[in-house]
């Protein structure tokens, strides 16, 4: 069924980004359920990360970065919440200020003056060298997406060879904590 816009109202067509944290029972199939929900209903996933956070209670935390109209984001949260193994859904973007971080490993293959330049920039960006050969570096870097992208752009002319990123993880600032 095609989506018919409901209102010309700005609120109904304006897109926003949302970082959604989800606490789930760590059981086989949960990831397929979450991903299937997004693909089946045509929602957008910009990034998705998942790892166990409470071994004793077998709980994992998923962080999903998505975008949509206010109505679609509300839908995404409600749809996630009604999955049986989902314990808690939190829209970090609405719960006040939050931190979003990503880990990136980036390989640069270069020699001569370009090596010195790559190291200088890495230092400025607080990227760590975690592997080095006479012809290459692997840098490790954490930060928000903008910072990682800026660093990647700077490495491009210096011999950027490979990038790998984890996707965003997020947490609220201050005392607010997400509990299952």
């Amino acid at each position: 069924m095609p989506a018919v816009p409901t209102m010309s109202d700005n609120n109904e067509t304006k897109l926003r980004n949302a970082t959604i944290a989800v606490l789930v029972d760590n059981e086989p199939g949960i990831l397929a359920r979450v991903v299937g929900l997004f693909s089946g209903r045509g929602y957008n996933i910009e990034s998705l990360t998942v790892a166990p956070v409470d071994e004793d209670r077998a709980i994992s935390r998923i962080t999903i970065v998505t975008s949509g109209t206010e109505m679609v984001i509300e839908q995404i949260k409600a749809q996630l919440d009604r999955l049986v193994p989902v314990r808690k859904v939190c829209d970090l973007s609405l719960e006040g200020p939050h931190l979003a971080r990503e880990l990136m490993l980036i390989k640069v293959v270069c020699t001569g003056e370009q090596r010195a330049e790559a190291l200088r920039l890495a230092d400025a960006f607080r990227a760590r060298v975690i592997d080095a050969t006479t012809a290459s570096f692997v840098f490790e870097m954490t930060g928000n997406g903008d910072k990682l992208e800026a660093f990647t752009a700077l490495m491009r002319p210096l011999g950027l060879a490979e990038v790998v990123r984890t996707g965003v993880i997020g947490i609220a600032r201050g005392t607010y904590s997400l509990k299952a």
Partner: peptide
């Protein structure tokens, strides 16, 4: 997550 491809209940 130690997801196995077949889905279903968590098995210790």
């Amino acid at each position: 997550m130690r997801a196995s491809p077949d889905g279903g209940t968590h098995s210790e």
